[in-house]
Write a protein that binds this DNA or RNA. Structure first.
Lengths: 242, 242
DNA sequence: CAGTGGTCTAGACCACGCC
DNA sequence: GCGTGGTCTAGACCACTGC
């Protein structure tokens, strides 16, 4: 492929190249080069090019039209769009609020069947476990239970997290490159323990979130179960018709 | 492929075959036949088999593990990936469930300030208003309150919607081309009226959705407020680190 | 080691949109 | 007609898992 190395799959490298172009050079509804042109320009097979384009489509960055081409998706309106970022600290700063994180618990456990499956590790593998309360402008916003595989974060100490964002520690202290985070969420009602910490009533609506974060070798480096106050979190998504 | 016809792509037909097996014969964490075995059994190339498996993975029906195999995903509620969701009817069909829509109400109203703002029309403009109950396999799933601008759907009758999906009517009967749908959602708890219709308790968790649909001239052609059972809907998105 | 999914190639033909 | 994305083949080698 000439301009790229081989530590990542070729289609992933192409995703990065095109994502850069989309973000920095192109406008919504601009057309991308055709698949055959990308094939030629980067010396790839069409299969590989299409893999990359499909990933960009899954990410919502482009839409494809049979017979016409592949186009940059419109970013789908900003405002309270929480789907563009996944760091609580970053989100709150962007909204002009002052974030605060209180570490309620920090320990190590061994993965049971559930965690082994979700984090793609073996049963019995060691994990860091932490519980954190996140607030903004002094108002409790969400409770997070986070699990990290010890193999990647051997030297992690509670103090590391007292004054830095988790993602900063992951990237700057442990040099793990975060590539993608998958997030699932569904409505629920507050369990008593969570309700107390969030300052809401038992049975108040909450949004449950499950986040899995991968590094550039496709290993799970973070698994977090969050409970967020429903009155503080709203998501926004755009989908394109094909 | 022998056992199948050619009206659908081969990988889609394989999706149907495997989805049937998953739903009717297999249990969570059961292993599916290997890709090479499927290749041989159905006379397909591995590329086509992998396309089908990827679709099943996107639908949340299976998960894949490098070096081990492809397995049936657990959980009764399949995660619905927002970035590829279109209509309720299509979504349920893709999951192999039988969708049904009951029209509870059909009338016309004049837009008040709120609807005028959300739908980008003038106060007093005429709107169709309908309330629909959506079910899958006989289980109530969500209640939708939908508003359509009369200017685009003059001849719309209740009967049009009795046996066709709203989006089909919009596109095929009124020739409005849907370009994009924006969706906002947040956790809530069931209001008494909705709880009754959905067959859940008052105060049970629900997901509130607000959807705005645009045609290719960027006019709002649909505005819908939905209330979905939390135990039936789960959403999934991916974030990229840049 | 054998068996699994993951990546990749170099083609082919089909279906769609548009001039 | 021509350029676009959509489907599909028949291979190849790599990377991971588990015995």
């Amino acid at each position: 492929m000439g301009t790229v190395s081989r530590k990542q799959p070729l289609y992933d490298q192409l995703v990065d190249i095109l994502r850069d172009k989309i973000v920095n050079e192109l406008k919504p509804n601009d057309m991308l080069p055709s698949e055959r042109e990308l094939t030629e320009r980067y010396g790839l097979s069409r299969t590989t090019v299409r893999l990359a384009l499909q990933e960009l489509e899954n990410l919502g960055l482009v839409y494809r039209r049979h017979g016409k081409g592949t186009f940059v998706a419109s970013s789908g309106t900003q405002a309270t769009n929480l789907s563009q970022t996944y760091s609580f600290t970053e989100q709150m700063r962007r909204l002009g609020r002052v974030p605060k994180t209180t570490i309620l618990e920090f320990s190590t456990i061994e993965a049971n069947k559930y965690y082994a499956l979700r984090m793609n590790v073996h049963i019995g593998d060691h994990l860091f476990k932490m519980k954190r309360l996140r607030s903004a402008d002094g108002v409790p916003m969400m409770v997070e239970r986070t699990f990290l595989p010890m193999r990647n974060f051997m030297a992690l100490k509670r103090e590391d997290l007292e004054h830095a964002a988790l993602y900063d520690v992951i990237e700057n202290v442990f040099h793990e490159k975060i590539r993608v985070a998958e997030e699932e969420f569904f409505a629920s009602i507050a369990r008593p323990e969570d309700a107390r910490m969030l300052g809401i009533g038992e049975g108040a609506p909450v949004l449950d979130l499950v986040r899995t974060t991968y590094n550039d070798r496709n290993e799970v480096i973070e698994f977090t179960l969050s409970v967020a106050r429903a009155d503080q979190f709203k998501y926004k998504i755009s989908h394109y018709r094909s």
